[in-house]
Design a protein around this nucleic acid. Structure first.
Lengths: 236, 236
DNA sequence: CGTTGGTTTGATGGTTCTCAAACTAGGTGG
DNA sequence: CCACCTAGTTTGAGAACCATCAAACCAACG
């Protein structure tokens, strides 16, 4: 089992063996969570910082009328809540979408990590800035593109993010259409129509409710995807 | 002339006189910039960190087809590019929307500030996290609300953000309809229709192309505005 | 006094939502 | 093993929202 946290941070900082060893230790405390379960809820002031080791989670808010808005997808290697120590309470929730393995690290351990492991601290800093850049690109995506391009753009991003942590299997996405709808801000019905359209154009493939990408370059061109905002090292 | 940077940071940290004095010094280097001018352009690796002292600026990207997407509005007290030292190159541009006074602070000065003034450093850290929270709320706003609510929500946010730095004049917004359109991801024509509708409902007032808010509570209710995400101290 | 940038208004069309219902696959209990 | 139930997917018809295109209007400015 590889350490996806270390792999992710390695994109923004050059870690040494001692760094990776420490991360391996910290990541040893984890628990399995079923799909659709909150890791942290809005209003919490949690004691632990969490990292996703396996599965897909999301940041989300529930609107007054009951709709859910997903503002970020968290994949293996992603931290959930590094910021909570400063802001105090959570202004949104974090929950699993698929079954997940979630590591929990105590606040003192995080403090120690940031103080004593400067390369890791730099990687964390880099990581949170990339998260912000992703958020900005989502804003562009939702504001300016039609929903088929939106969907394609999201898939391109996930493809690259999974690749950046060296996801072992070929990329395949097992989210439900409702989860995709809440992410893109469109209805389930329309997600369905967009997916069938993309499938008919040969841009994606669908087997057992899993989306795969036959030709990433083609999908990137279709969605005007520019990977610049992910700030990945050149080889990706 | 008050120091809006200090006022803003005071919302997230308790500054002392020495802190404010240092900020006063740093902010002394500024230049006036006309409207519609880039402070930093995409691809730059700038030498200075900038802060808005007066006027309104924005983060934006230009899409391949020429459209502009505004992803953040920067008001007096806001820093533009604290993150650039880590990420290297800018993945978006920052430009003025109205005439601005912009302070520029050298990288060594910023380093010193973060090292030697821990309360300021904490305020900066808080500030960047709030920026991220604002970005998330914009995503919710654009994804889930109709354009009249979107507009109202944006106006509520700006009202509170200006209030949080103690903006001297009563709130009034002097952006063009095109600038608002690029921010909300809708067309100029539709901005026009939304504005007249809000005006007819008495939710906003319009004089000399300046939008004012007669009753903020009413506008907040209309747009389902929950100020929680701004993480302001209770008095606001 | 023409030019320019911005606002306002109208008509039409496309994208996406809403409502409604059928269908599929997996799981559970009789 | 089958009947039922549930969550998720698929399809259709009509309406709402917003975009597009086009043109008039207005104020500031040289």
């Amino acid at each position: 089992m590889r350490n996806f946290v270390a792999r992710k941070l390695n994109n923004g900082a050059v870690l040494r063996e001692s760094d990776e060893a420490r991360l391996d230790e910290l990541v040893r405390n984890w628990r399995a969570m079923p799909a659709r379960t909150d890791i942290i809820s809005q209003g919490d002031d949690p004691e632990f910082v969490h990292a996703i080791l396996d599965g897909i989670a999301c940041r989300y808010k529930i609107l007054p009328d009951g709709r859910r808005s997903i503002m970020d997808l968290l994949i293996p290697g992603d931290f959930c809540d590094m910021h909570i120590a400063i802001l105090g309470r959570m202004d949104h929730s974090i929950g699993t979408l698929t079954p997940c393995r979630v590591a929990h690290i105590s606040r003192p351990e995080v403090e120690d990590l940031l103080q004593e492991y400067p390369r890791i601290a730099r990687g964390m800093w880099w990581s949170s800035l990339v998260d912000e850049a992703i958020l900005r690109e989502w804003l562009v995506n939702m504001g300016q593109r039609r929903s088929d391009r939106q969907m394609a753009h999201l898939l391109c991003e996930l493809y690259l993010r999974f690749a950046a942590v060296g996801w072992p299997e070929a990329f395949s996405l097992g989210l439900t259409q409702e989860q995709l709808a809440d992410t893109l801000g469109i209805t389930v019905v329309h997600v369905q129509r967009v997916i069938t359209a993309l499938r008919q154009d040969g841009l994606i493939e669908l087997r057992d409710r899993q989306i795969t990408i036959p030709d990433i370059a083609q999908l990137m061109e279709f969605s005007e995807f520019d990977p610049d905002y992910l700030h990945l090292p050149p080889e990706h």
